[in-house]
Amino acid sequence: MEPAPLVLLHAFPFDSRMWDGVRDLLKPITPDQRGADRSPDLVAVADDVLRLLDERGVERAVLGGCSMGGYVAMAVLRRDPSRVAGLVLADTRAGADTDEARANRLAMAARVEAEGLGWVPDTVVSGLLGPAPDEAVVGRVRELILDQDPAEVVWAQRAMAARPDSADVLAEVDVPALVLVGEHDALTPPALARELAGMLRQGEYVELPGVGHLTPLEAPDAFAAAVLDWRRRAGV
Score class of each variant (00 low, 15 high):
Ile29Trp: 07
Glu55Gln: 14
Phe14Cys: 06
Asp15Asn: 15
Glu55Tyr: 08
Ile29Leu: 09
Pro5Leu: 13
Asp15Phe: 12
Leu42Asn: 06
Leu9Ile: 09
Val49Lys: 02
Val43Ile: 15
Gly21Tyr: 15
Val7Gly: 00
Asp20Tyr: 02
Asp47Ile: 02
Ala4Val: 08
Leu50Glu: 02
Leu6Asp: 04
Leu53Cys: 04
Asp20Val: 03
Arg38Met: 05
Val45Leu: 05
Leu9Thr: 05
Leu8Ala: 01
Arg23Glu: 12
Val49Pro: 03
Arg34Leu: 15
Asp54Cys: 01
Arg34Trp: 12
Leu26Lys: 02
Ala11Ile: 09
Ile29Glu: 09
Asp54His: 04
Val49Ile: 02
Leu50Ser: 02
Glu2Phe: 07
Arg17Gly: 03
Arg56Leu: 15
Asp47Cys: 02
Arg56Asp: 13
Val49Glu: 04
Lys27Pro: 00
Gly35Glu: 10
Asp54Ala: 06
Leu8Asn: 03
Val43Gly: 12
Arg34Asn: 12
Leu6Ile: 03
Gly35Lys: 09
Val49Thr: 05
Ala4Glu: 15
Ala4Gln: 13
Leu42Ile: 05
Leu8Gln: 00
His10Glu: 13
Phe12Ser: 13
Asp37Glu: 13
Arg23Leu: 06
Asp32Asn: 13
Val45Ile: 10
Arg51Pro: 00
Leu25Arg: 14
Arg51Ile: 07
Leu8Arg: 01
Asp37Ala: 11
Ile29Asp: 11
Asp32Cys: 05
Leu6Lys: 00
Pro3Ile: 11
Leu52Asn: 00
Glu2Gly: 05
Val7Ala: 03
Asp48Ala: 03
Phe12Pro: 04
Arg17Glu: 10
Val45Lys: 00
Ala46Cys: 08
Pro28Ile: 11
Arg56Met: 15
His10Lys: 10
Leu52Gly: 00
